[in-house]
Design a protein around this nucleic acid. Structure first.
Lengths: 200, 200
DNA sequence: GTCTATATCTGGATAGAC
DNA sequence: GTCTATCCAGATATAGAC
């Protein structure tokens, strides 16, 4: 996080360029120019271009993982926890300079190279799935397939980035809307999603 | 659609390669090899590489547009129409060989070049928004912002492609799950989403 | 640490023979 | 229509001076 750390500076610039130009179109020259270095100077900090991508990818799952870990150990009924997760996740995603889906796709095409990413991602999925399962068991959620529901939650969180960029809005407002709709579709008939939303 | 049409063959191969390698990594040489031509022979059919991309992009909005046009003029309450839209859209997306989100992003970075795409996209958004608005008016949907809801619906439809590819499942099953959750979060308290789902 | 210079490669695109 | 040959631009990466 140190402002003077060149590696950190490069990664911040890389995130910005990934968002503007796309990952593939972000070349070492452009990246170097962005931080005021010569093209070849980047190789002092990174072995190659892929290492820059890998360094950014490594951070992609940190926020949602910390978020859900904090929630499962906290208080509240399952729908409330899920609401908070979705809202926090969407809000964090909307704040990223680059598109998580693009990272996702690149990591998907090189599964072994990004093995760490996929492990964390699988862990996130497991945590979310078991949270949903708990909700189905205690009756606060409908009787849906927890794995399918978990995947759908993550999908809509990430999909939101796609249109958020096209039509910028206050991130919190978007996050609340997505959470309300997504979790509203999961709660058991007796439970009022609006009450959950105002409590969260 | 003619099997012997070289242009059609190239586009089908392009879709496949876009999915496997990504759009940027799909070169004219690879594409030519895929259809059994020399690299330069492609230039007989397409002026340049972007034209291949544009030809595929042009088709991206056709299915969901036809889908919603058919629904708005048909029978049924709004939630039922929305359920059918989401299910149909997700099912179609899961059947595509390439990732619509990648196309989306490429078109987003060159708005003027893909002006047609964005016009159709805007039309789709308007149709969906007004369908949601109708539902809010007649009380079959909750009192949510129609524009925000419409965007969220499209986002989760498209986001689904992201994980569907990672963990392949029967497309219809996935589509039903997404539709049930998404529309379930929109219907007014009195309406049972399970009833809608079984009717659809 | 950062630079200049350079080797090497790959892809897009055109010209012109067949 | 499809090919071969070729040009050109841009990108990765390394070597070695400062």
């Amino acid at each position: 996080m140190a402002a003077g750390d060149p590696i950190e500076e490069v990664l911040i610039a890389a995130g910005r360029l990934f968002g503007q130009l796309g990952v593939e179109a972000t070349t070492m020259s452009k990246l170097a120019a962005e931080v005021g270095l010569g093209q070849s100077s980047l190789y002092y900090y990174f072995r190659n271009r892929d290492e820059v991508v890998a360094a950014l990818v490594a951070r992609a799952n940190v926020v949602p993982l910390e978020l859900i870990e904090g929630l499962v150990h906290g208080d509240g009924i399952v729908p409330l926890k899920l609401y908070r997760f979705v809202r926090g996740d969407v809000e964090a995603l909307c704040g990223l300079p680059f598109d998580i889906n693009e990272i996702h796709r690149i990591a998907g095409r090189q599964r072994d190279r990004f093995a760490d990413y996929w492990q964390e991602r699988a862990l996130l999925d497991r945590r979310l799935t078991s949270l949903v399962r708990a909700g189905v068991r205690d009756g606060s959620l409908r009787d849906i397939d927890p794995r399918l529901a978990s995947a759908t939650i993550l999908a809509s969180d990430e999909g939101t980035q796609n249109w958020f960029r096209l039509r910028p809005q206050p991130a919190r407002r978007v996050a609340d809307a997505v959470a309300r709709i997504t979790i509203g579709g999961l709660v058991a008939p007796g439970i009022d999603i609006d009450e959950i939303a105002s409590e969260a």
